[in-house]
Design a protein around this nucleic acid. Structure first.
Lengths: 227, 227
DNA sequence: CGGTTCGTTGAGGCCCATCAATCTATGTGG
DNA sequence: CCACATAGATTGATGGGCCTCAACGAACCG
C-alpha cells in the first residue's frame, strides 16, 4: 500500500537544505539512505542542530499537522529521500490506524531523544557529550557487538560541535583525549569503539530510552479491548 | 464525552513526584491548575528539567503508547491534576480521530519547544537563556500586553538553574543584572516585564513556534478530501 | 602549484561552576 | 519575646572548562 503512494524518490548532494524554516512544505520526507540533520538558528546567527536523521527516520513529521515547520533540514552526506505528498500521507493515516499510531510514537521517541540531548547540553562535559552522542548513534544504526565495533561516521568535527554546543576546536581537543584514553578511534569517516561498556560509562549512557519502540505494540494492545 | 471518562481529579502538594522514571504509569495526567515539570537524571546525579508544565498541559502523553516513560514529573506548586486511565484515553482516541490528531499535535509542539530549549542550552548566554524562558512562559500562560505585563511566577532560582543548565548562584547574578538593566522585576513569586519587546530582543526570542497549534486544523483539513 | 577543506595546536581570556560565607525572611518552640 | 533552625537569595574569591583569535599542517583537487 505504501508503495503506491510514493510520488518520488530522489538523490541529493551533501550539505543541501531539504527543508527551510518557515517555508511551506508539501511532502513528507523519509530518509532512505544517507544522513541528514535538523537545525534551528538564533536571530544572532547561532546555530544548533536539534536532531540527527539516519536511514529510516522521517525528516519532517510535523508537516502533517502544521503548515510550517520551525526548523530546517540539511543533508550531511549524499542521500536518497522518499517523498510522500501530505494529502496521501494523511489518507494513509486515516485509513490505517496503525500507521497513525506509529507516527505518533515516532514523535514521542523524538521527544525522548531530545530530552537526552538537553541533559547533555545542560549538564555534561564536552567529553561526556561526545561519548554520549557516539553511543546513541551506534545503537540507532543498529550496530551489534560490545568490543571493537566499527561503523561509518560521516560527521565532521564542526558538525559534532553544532550538535553538542561546542566549537570545532574544542571538539578536536576532546576527541584527541578520547582517543588517547583508548575509548575511540576516529579516522577516514569511520569510527571504532574498542570497548562499548567503557565508552558508555564515560558518557553516563543508558540505552533504554532508544528501545521504546519495542513497547509500542504492547501498550497499544489494550485499545482492542476498549474499542 | 471527555467528562465521563475522568476517573479522578486530585490535589497534590508542591515538590512531589507525580511520575517516576521507569515506573509503570497507568493514567494520563492533565495539569488543571498549578505548575509542574518533567526532568531526567544522569547516572552521575546531574539533573536536567526537560519540560515545564502549566495548566492545560499533559504531563505524560507518551504513556499512551509506551509502558514506561523515560522521565519523572514533579510538582512545582500545589497542583490539581486530572487523570484518565490509559484504557479510556485510548478508547477516546479511537473513537474521535480529532482527539488523536490533537494528541499527536501536542507531541509535535513539545518537540518544537524542546528544540528551542536545545538552542538555548547549547548556544545562548545565561542572560539570554533566562530572558528566553520568561518570554516563553508569558506566552504559554496567555498573558496579554506589551508593556508592564505581570503574572505569577512560582519558579525558584535553583529551579530556573535546573531548567537552563545553570547554577542557582549564577542565576541570582544574572537575574540581578536583568533587573538592573530594567528588563524584568522579580519578587514575591511575581514577575513583571516592563517592556516585552526589549526582553525579547535580549533573548533572541521569536514567538512563532508557540503558535503552531493555530495551524493544526488548517493543515488537517485536506484529509477530508482524501478520505 | 595554489586553493580549499578539515583537523590540529597554542596563547589568552571570559563565562560560569565551585566553595564558602552572609543576609533576610519565615517558622518553631521555650 | 527571644533563641534557634531552615529556606531562599545574595555576595565574594577562586578556578576551570570552553571560547576566541590566530597560525599551521595535512589531504585533496583543479
Amino acid at each position: 500500500m505504501l508503495e503506491h503512494a510514493v510520488t518520488w524518490s530522489k538523490r541529493f548532494d551533501s550539505h543541501k537544505d531539504l527543508v527551510c524554516e518557515a517555508e511551506k512544505a508539501d511532502n513528507l520526507l523519509i530518509v532512505a539512505g544517507g544522513w541528514a540533520y535538523r537545525y534551528t538558528c538564533a536571530p544572532d546567527g547561532g546555530r544548533q542542530l536539534t536532531a540527527l536523521l539516519v536511514p529510516g527516520d522521517i525528516a519532517n513529521l510535523d508537516m502533517l499537522l502544521f503548515e510550517r515547520v520551525a526548523y530546517s533540514v540539511r543533508t550531511l552526506t549524499d542521500i536518497t529521500v522518499v517523498a510522500l505528498p501530505r494529502k496521501q500521507a494523511l489518507a494513509l493515516v486515516d485509513e490505517y490506524p496503525g500507521i497513525a499510531r506509529t507516527f505518533t510514537g515516532l514523535a514521542m521517541i523524538e521527544n525522548a531523544i531530545a530530552s537526552k540531548w538537553m541533559l547533555s547540553l545542560g549538564r555534561r562535559s564536552a567529553q561526556a557529550r561526545i561519548a554520549h552522542l557516539l553511543c546513541e548513534i551506534a545503537i540507532r544504526l543498529g550496530v551489534e557487538g560490545e568490543n571493537d565495533i566499527t561503523f561509518p561516521f560521516p560527521l565532521r568535527q564542526d558538525q559534532i560541535g553544532d550538535l553538542l554546543g561546542l566549537t570545532n576546536i574544542h571538539v578536536s581537543r576532546t576527541v584527541r583525549q578520547l582517543r588517547e584514553d583508548g575509548l575511540i578511534q576516529m579516522c577516514d569517516r569511520v569510527l571504532t569503539i574498542p570497548d562499548v561498556a567503557a565508552l558508555r560509562y564515560a558518557a553516563g549512557f543508558d540505552p533504554s530510552y532508544l528501545y521504546m519502540h519495542r513497547h509500542i505494540d504492547a501498550a497499544a494492545r489494550p485499545k482492542a479491548d476498549a474499542a
